[in-house]
Nucleic acid binder design. Structure first.
Lengths: 104, 104
DNA sequence: TCAACATATAAGTACACACTTATGCAAAAG
DNA sequence: CTTTTGCATAAGTGTGTACTTATATGTTGA
């Protein structure tokens, strides 16, 4: 299930931090690595997990690999929330308020 | 980190299904169990994980334990998405569209 | 051509997780 | 009181995960 992959990818704090970095701007693995206290293979493995979940995209240029966040990647997460709301008749209003707070 | 706990809780498909059940209406552990092909302890363990993440609340009545979804539980998830957007200057519009689609 | 570089993959390890069966414990039923 | 019921906890097991070091693959520059 793709939903599970997205949630699992986001469950790790390092991986979320990696995603936030490449969401700000495209970045090579090496530059990405410089921001974290883990080995280069660890970064590559996190990127592979994020890519598998559809959260990042890769651009290859010579020996460099540039990664960037893919906006469509969190769609499964948001549509799950949406479906979740469908099962939640009594409390829709409260949740609507939470969502409203997200649209400044 | 509470965000990690929420994402980890939602990463398991059985646990998401349990959450959806108790989101529809309050339910005892026994009734909940009848909808799944796992043992009663497994259900209790899933509920404990969901409760630890703040996604469900418990009401005790005699020897029965009734669980219901807690609407505030997904707030950490949504506020993470919100913060994620802040790191995402170029693609905000696309993401805004996704979020708009959630408010019918 | 070949040494340095950027990244990916392989293999190993320690720990977390999703389940199971067995047992504990309190409340209801008899 | 004793038994049954509803649920939680304990303990064990196989699988997954997040990391490491070591190595492989492809690319650039001397």
């Amino acid at each position: 299930m793709i939903e599970s992959e997205v949630f699992r990818a986001l469950a790790d704090p390092t991986r979320r931090a990696v995603l936030e970095r490449v969401a700000a701007r495209e970045m090579s693995v090496g530059e990405l690595k410089s921001h974290f206290a883990v080995s280069q293979p660890a970064i590559s493995q996190h990127l592979a997990a994020l890519k598998g979940a559809g959260l990042v995209a890769e651009r290859r240029e010579g020996r460099f690999a540039y990664y960037r966040a893919d906006p469509k990647g969190i769609a499964p997460l948001l549509s799950w929330v949406k479906r979740y709301r469908a099962f939640w008749p009594e409390r829709i209003e409260k949740l609507k308020d939470v969502l409203k707070g997200m649209d400044p």
